[in-house]
Design a protein around this nucleic acid. Structure first.
Lengths: 156, 156
DNA sequence: TCTAAAATCACCCTAAAGTATGAAGACAAT
DNA sequence: ATTGTCTTCATACTTTAGGGTGATTTTAGA
């Protein structure tokens, strides 16, 4: 039981010991201060330095690592079919017809102005559609939207 | 030049100002110490606390975030072609290494600002690279460039 | 060593993209 | 009839992209 406790909390115990050593060091520094009365600035500086390092160390040790999810497409050899639309992903996004059209024209490299002309609507309409589809796809830019759409096989 | 310096080093300047404020605070604390002579422990404690926080803050701000990558494999029907770079087309375009890098990051949906950060160069540099590659590829926009690059099999 | 291409950066300016908000008509479902 | 979504459009504003120019520094080759 005791041994298990030791092994399990080895980390914590080590931290505790380190802290104790640190406090001893501070006490020693304080004692030094009594001898060299004009070393206050040095003492303060040392304290600052030590605790800055402590803070950095704490942050690095304890901060939870950021988790990023990366979708990697595993290619599966498949017969001839070059491209089939992934209807499941498409429905999951909830894009409307018009938004999908705009997305496809974006992927072809058209500007909003050109898309508007192609679809016989105003530039503002295209901006609205694009903004909405960016929100639905959770992206910030058209290039991201196109990239994601390709990865999800929504567009060729 | 000056304005750009201000905007680019805004972060750094803010850090500097924060540090200055912190030092002022310390001076003030020191002055307090002269009045309440028995507050040394409190003073030291405050220093320790402040600099621990500073350390934590520094670490969180400046340390590159640890990234744990969670890979989710996603099966995608593939036409048996595992993408081979078309070196002939690539040479025909005459893109430089850096320009190709920028193009690839564009295709991943990054903004010029993000590309600059990724490649550790300035925004202006990325703009220059992108302009040059647009000329070489004879396109007008990044979206067109990405589309053409995919069609020419220069990027996946 | 000299040179040409590549890479870097800055400044100014315009164009395009994107954000936020509001609104109105069409149309299907309840 | 009311509700909700889609589509359309506008206005105002901010941010990003892109064009043009000029410059310095690296780097690789003749």
């Amino acid at each position: 039981m005791k041994l298990h406790f030791l092994t399990k909390h080895k980390q914590t115990i080590l931290y505790g010991i380190s802290l104790a050593v640190l406090l001893l060091l501070l006490k020693w520094l304080e004692w030094q201060l009594l001898i060299f009365h004009h070393a206050l600035e040095i003492y303060i500086g040392a304290i600052a330095l030590i605790f800055t390092c402590l803070g950095i160390w704490l942050a690095l040790k304890l901060a939870r690592p950021k988790v990023t999810t990366v979708v990697i497409e595993k290619k599966v050899p498949d017969s001839g079919d070059p491209f089939t639309i992934n209807h499941r992903e498409l429905e999951k996004l909830g894009l409307s017809n018009r938004e999908l059209e705009v997305l496809q024209l974006m992927a072809a490299g058209l500007s909003n102005q050109e898309i508007a002309a192609r679809l016989f609507v105003s530039l503002n309409t295209i901006k609205t559609h694009s903004s909405n589809l960016f929100i639905k796809m959770d992206v910030k830019r058209r290039t991201q939207a196109v990239d994601m759409a390709r990865k999800l096989r929504i567009i060729p």
